[in-house]
Each structure stands twice: as structure tokens, then as C-alpha cells.
Write a protein that binds this DNA or RNA. Structure first.
Lengths: 222, 222
DNA sequence: TAGAATTATTTGGTACACAATATTTAGAAA
DNA sequence: TTTCTAAATATTGTGTACCAAATAATTCTA
């Protein structure tokens, strides 16, 4: 039974949501896993009520899918769906990179550089999980650079869904090294305020990532 | 007490969510209105549980905002936020139009034309509410034309938030007439499979809509 | 073996109680 | 009067128990 702590101004349901979301994003809960309310309630030592609410929030975010009376499962790996997710992500994030080129602040670029350095350290130390996490931060930082909360929300909404599939490719040090080079080019384009180049670089980066994800899935299903 | 009917394979919470969402989108619940659970439960003759779940879903969609222990209110009219919403919507839907130009099926174009005709009828009969609804369908049809469910979800996620503010401008017959012309040009671009033009036309159309929305809000606050 | 009927299990919903917190109201002090 | 503090209030958040409804699993029959 895992102990939970709720800060003031927060709710148990929210804590649960984040906890379960972490388990999904970090791969502890594999896609396809059934999440039944009673088990989770027992596991965390709470009643069904907050568990239900947490699951509904996750369903709204698209991390799990639930059908009335037949429970909720972690969003599954349907290979053509991943392709669709990758395409959406490429389109949306390229758009963000283009926009961010003219809007991201100097402070934010500084933060971006710092994240990039952290990525480098994690890559060299072989911490694939850590790298995946830092990579997410890197992309979020660029999306935030658009300075438009509603655009940010929409794009993050899409990114959240693809997150569970983005970890796997980073197990490969080669892919991490490639990714680092691509990140560097993106930062340079942003610093140069070159919108077209930032868009182009982001598109190429995510296309490469998409290929890596697809590769991994193909291996998985053979 | 409003009677509710739940279809098989659906839940009361979902029915409630749609009902409340309609009330918000149609302007029956004005922005800023407090939605307390007990009142809603009494109003619909149900218990608090499904009401809570419906409200949480609406919060996830961004139609209402809720803070722990202090209830949920219909998302308010902050004028700079509307501008941000409009910009996000312009960017995302233009992207969709560009993509849809090469992907939308002939059947879908047919459906689009039909919706366009309905819009024409509603416009001429002076039914502003009906026009606003049909207008939403028109835009959704184009977004769906991208054939990418994840992109569709992300864009609709943004569109849902702006919906409450898009009704007002259509009170003006002039704006409806302009809108119709713009819609026509968009359809023609899509039929010609001219991606650049479809993108351009959609961007201009939504920019004009954004100006109309802003105009209306300025009048409202003076 | 395939299909139909039955059972089991899980979710969806109701009702009620109580705890926790934000908000408001009233009161005390400056 | 004003402002800060403290109690009162209302609403949300969570727990418990129970039942209904629907799906999933199982058994039985043809």
C-alpha cells in the first residue's frame, strides 16, 4: 500500500491522477494494462471515489481509454495510431518552433540551453529514462516559447498521448546522440530568430524520432 | 426538474456533461456563472456523483475552471485571453485547411457543400443561433478532412474553448454574409486541392471572425 | 463445436455522513 | 471608521454501503 500525501490546496484525486500518469509515462503501466478501480483503491489505501475521478481525468487527457461498464485500460499500442500521433506531433510542434523563433524570450532560451546540457550529461551517463524526461522538458520549453497558452494547451494535449511511446528509442545511445545534434540545431535557429529554419529543424528532428519509434515497434511485433 | 435520458452504452455523467456544455456554448450559462453541485443535482434530479464527474470533464476540456474546495465557474471573458484563443485557432485551423486540401475525400466535400447550403438558408432566415451551430459544423468538417484523429482532437480541444465567444458576431447579418463568402472561397480552394490557397483563405476567414469577436467584446465593455 | 442462456464481475449511480477547506460574517482592537 | 482576527457557514472532497445495469466469462444445450 503506497502512502500518499496531499498538499494543502490540492485533492487526493489530483495526487492519484499524477501518480498514475507518472506510472504510465514512465512505462511502469504498460499500454493495454487494465486499471480497475477497486484494485487501485486498495493499492493506495483510499476509497473508490477519488480513484474514479482520477481515472476520468486521465481519460479526458487521452492517456487511458474507458468505455461505459467495461473499465479503463492504458491506451494501447496500435501501430497505425502511433503513426497518426507522430504526424500530428510533427505538424503541431513545427508550427510552435516557427512561432517561438520570433517570440521566445532570452531567459527562456537560456533555460533551453540548460536543459540541453542536462540532456547531454544524462545521455553520456547512459540514463535513458532520465534523458527521456529531460527531452520532454526540452520540447515543452519550445512550445511554451510561443507565449500562447491556448496553443500550448492544445499541443501539450497531443504530446501527452505520444509520451508513452517516446521513451523506448532513447534506450539507444546512437539515437540519443542524433537527438542531441538535432536539438542543438533547433536552439541555434531559435537564437538566430530564423523562423523557417526552426520549423524545418523541428520537423526533421521529430520525423527522425518518429522513424525511431516505428523501428522500435516493428522490432517489438516480430 | 429537467428529465434526462441515457442511451444504452452511455452514462448519466456524459449526458449531463453534454447538457451543461450546450448550456455554456449556447450562452444560457454566461461566463462567470457559478455551477454548484447540489443545485445542478437538484435541477436534473440526480445525485451529486454524476454531476461532479460531468464538471470534472468540462474542466478538463477547459469550458469551466475549478479550484479545490472553491467550486467551479464557467470560464470567464478575459479579453486578452480571447485574443490568444483566436490566434491559436487561426494557426491550428489554417494548418488543418492546408492539410485537408490534399486529403479530404469527395464525400466529405459533398457534406461540406451541404452544410454550406444549410448555413445559407439559416443566414437568410435570420436564425443567428442556428447559423452559429452550422458554422461550427462547417469548421469541424474541414478539420476532420485532415484524416488524423489526434490532430483533430487537439484542434477541437482549442475550438471548444473559443466556441462560447463565436456566437455573438453572427447576430449581425452583414457578418454572416461575409462569412458565407469566405466559406465559399475555402470550399473552392479545397476542391481545387490548392493547399496554399486553402490555408490562406482559412487564415483570412478566421482573422475576420476574430476582428468581429473583438468588436463585439469592445462594445460589450463600454 | 457453435450458439444460447446463465452466472460473475465490474462499473455506474444513489444516499448519507463526515472531514477539510474556502468564503463570509461577525467581532475586537487600533 | 478601518483593519485585522476569529468564529460561523457553506461547499467541496472523501468514505462507506448498497444496489442497478451492463459487460465479460462460464456453463449448458443443441
Amino acid at each position: 500500500m503506497k502512502p500518499l500525501q496531499v498538499e494543502r490546496g490540492d485533492t487526493l484525486a489530483n495526487v492519484l491522477r499524477r501518480h498514475i500518469a507518472d506510472d504510465i509515462l514512465s512505462g511502469k503501466c504498460e499500454p493495454g494494462t487494465r486499471l480497475d478501480e477497486r484494485s487501485l483503491a486498495n493499492e493506495y489505501g483510499v476509497s473508490r471515489t477519488p480513484v474514479r475521478e482520477a481515472l476520468q481525468q486521465l481519460a479526458a487527457a487521452g492517456l487511458v481509454s474507458s468505455k461505459p461498464h467495461s473499465g479503463t485500460i492504458v491506451q494501447g499500442v496500435e501501430i497505425e495510431r502511433v503513426a497518426s500521433l507522430c504526424e500530428a506531433s510533427i505538424l503541431l510542434e513545427s508550427l510552435c518552433a516557427k512561432l517561438a523563433a520570433s517570440r521566445i524570450s532570452a531567459v527562456e532560451i537560456g533555460r533551453l540551453r540548460k536543459i540541453h546540457e542536462q540532456c547531454e550529461t544524462l545521455h553520456k551517463s547512459g540514463d535513458a529514462e532520465g534523458y527521456a524526461l529531460a527531452n520532454r522538458k526540452f520540447h515543452s520549453a519550445i512550445i511554451s516559447g510561443t507565449q500562447n497558452t491556448d496553443l500550448i494547451d492544445a499541443v501539450e494535449f497531443c504530446r501527452l498521448r505520444i509520451a508513452p511511446f517516446q521513451r523506448a528509442p532513447f534506450q539507444s545511445a546512437d539515437r540519443r546522440a542524433e537527438s542531441q545534434k538535432e536539438h542543438k540545431r533547433i536552439i541555434e535557429a531559435l537564437e538566430a530568430r530564423d523562423a523557417a529554419k526552426a520549423e524545418q529543424m523541428m520537423s526533421e528532428h521529430l520525423s527522425a524520432a518518429a522513424v525511431a519509434i516505428d523501428d522500435h515497434l516493428q522490432n517489438f511485433f516480430s
